[in-house]
Nucleic acid binder design. Structure first.
Lengths: 334, 334
DNA sequence: CTGTTAGCGCTTTCAC
DNA sequence: GTGAAAGCGCTAACAG
């Protein structure tokens, strides 16, 4: 900047103001300065700016695993929002329960490498205390899974309503015996889906998985081995639904003739499997985008509190994996 | 830091040195300082440090779309490497051909918000000139797709060898008529796979897609409509292989009895489809990890040049979508 | 409209 | 073994 100032025959102050427009500058001088800036390919130093202003124009995103479809979608939305506002985005994995890693985002906030954080949890809500503490000292937004007990704004989806639509469909198709392959126990969305399930099928059994394909496969294997009778499976996400479907097909059962399956998320894979999966769509990119906007609004001074939380709609997508309940439940001991 | 210095009754200089260890400090004083640091929860300001040292301890990753499985895997590997070296990672999307967006990583480098960049392209190599220019002014590593014409180190996989294994398998199964559903034309990896294909099946036809499921579906539709006869499809990635498989199945053809299909990547979806996809595995997380390490080595002074490029192995994974060639090519005009 | 001056929080000579 | 002081590149009073 000094270089530009010298070349233009003015002080750095004037260059700074010509750039920011925070005070009037002689049009001629301004033009000259801008020409020089282009010529020298000058770009103001981000670090110096940060040091001066206290803001890094960068936000953080903490996710368990950036390579998962689910968090990748969130990340994409956040990145779009950050980009719109001309902010950078740094991502940090919280997975592996490596303590140093777990605190990484905390450190980034303290060192002011980032101005605020979007936190997407998926596992337990064990980190509540830490998040509550964090929220006191820095702007924080929860993406996807809200936490009722602390005063932090969140962006989530109408999981309960979506699940209700899903199980209502099963009911309408005549299903009576449905089992749930659930997500992490204790997770708000798991609770919501279970609540919706029981609304329609009060006594329905629930088995907890970990959201991965394998767990759907394994749980269904156990159910078959135990000779449990059911005509429909309500999985808390598409991955587990797909695992469940594979296990049933491996056992010679037909989907949906013998057993109907319904998933959640509407991942890319939902249309790749045969039959295509009936599922509840959640727009995770939008969740990310709105989380980003919420955080950025807050950074720009707009006060944002818990009541500004956003709830995005879900949508039931009916495809081939659901059908009328068979007369006799097929997985039977007979 | 001033606060700590005051409380400890020393100067900031001593605190700084107690922290960095760059010059001896009285053990007692050092202990006292460290105690105070813990107590005040002091963390040095990243911006100030950067301004002084010129290094931001942050690297950048430019990908077309962070939400894609492929780039998500790379991102995860890079994040791991960055984390190991206690560096931050900022991601920027290059997609959408939005010019401002395209230059985002360039700006980040100029403003020194990041110390170096990992660039993962997937589309054309039109950005060569810009990358060459970039490489002159900042540490750059190419992930996945090397560019021969410029002197930039890269981390990629043995695509040619993998493809050769794949088509050799088809040959061994007795296939004679194989068609390729290829990736972006002009991409080095597309070229390599095509070269391998022609090594074994000199006259094999190639149709170009865009790496998405849809394009595999569409291309196979065209081939069926044109009454082309073939017994095997060599797709340049799993997505297109899955699209191709769906199209064949929709047409009533059986995989692999009528047509064998082979993909590339070994995505999660490869084992979700029926039959499971025979494919060539590439460890994209490792590609990301090694790219990150290469860049970080370079930032730490180890000179890294083109000849330090890394080539990671691929592995043929035989699953259910490939089988012996049928006596008569089924998609036929008869 | 423009320049001078004083820091932002840290590291690093140069002295003692 | 420790301090004082300069300065990284920028912005923001405070004066003209």
């Amino acid at each position: 900047m000094q270089q530009i100032a010298d070349a233009a025959g003015v002080s750095v102050t004037t260059v700074s103001h010509a750039l920011s427009g925070k005070r009037p500058v002689n049009p001629d001088t301004a033009a000259r300065i801008h020409r020089l800036i282009d010529q020298f390919q000058y770009v103001p130093d981000a670090g110096a700016r940060r040091l001066q202003s206290g803001r890094s124009r960068t936000i953080g995103l903490a996710v368990p695993d950036i390579s998962h479809w689910y968090f990748g979608r969130i990340a994409r939305g956040v990145e779009e929002a950050a980009n719109e506002a001309d902010h950078g985005l740094v991502v940090a994995s919280t997975a592996n329960a490596d303590p140093r890693r777990e605190r990484r985002y905390f450190t980034m906030l303290s060192t002011r490498a980032i101005d605020g954080l979007i936190y997407a949890s998926s596992r337990s809500t064990a980190e509540i205390d830490e998040l509550a503490r964090l929220a006191r000292s820095a702007p924080l937004v929860l993406a996807d899974e809200p936490i009722e007990s602390i005063d932090v704004p969140s962006v989530s989806t109408t999981v309960y309503e979506g699940a209700l639509e899903a199980v209502t469909l099963l009911k309408a198709l005549g299903h009576e015996r449905v089992v749930a392959v659930a997500g992490y126990q204790g997770l708000p969305s798991t609770l919501a889906r279970t609540r919706a399930l029981h609304e329609v099928f009060p006594g329905a059994l629930t088995f907890y998985g970990d959201f991965e394909v394998e767990s759907g496969y394994r749980i269904l294997g156990d159910l078959l081995a135990a000779d449990l009778r059911f005509t429909a499976v309500f999985a808390h996400n598409d991955n587990m639904a797909i695992g469940a479907m594979r296990r049933l097909q491996d056992a010679g059962l037909r989907v949906p003739e013998d057993v109907s399956i319904i998933g959640f998320d509407d991942t890319d894979a939902a249309t790749m499997v045969t039959p295509a999966l009936t599922t509840v769509r959640k727009d995770m990119v939008e969740v990310g985008r709105q989380s980003g906007r919420l955080l950025l609004d807050r950074l720009n001074g707009t006060p944002v509190a818990k009541q500004d939380s956003v709830l995005l709609p879900t949508e039931l997508v009916v495809r081939g994996s659901t059908g009328p309940a068979p007369a006799t439940p097929r997985p039977s001991s007979s």
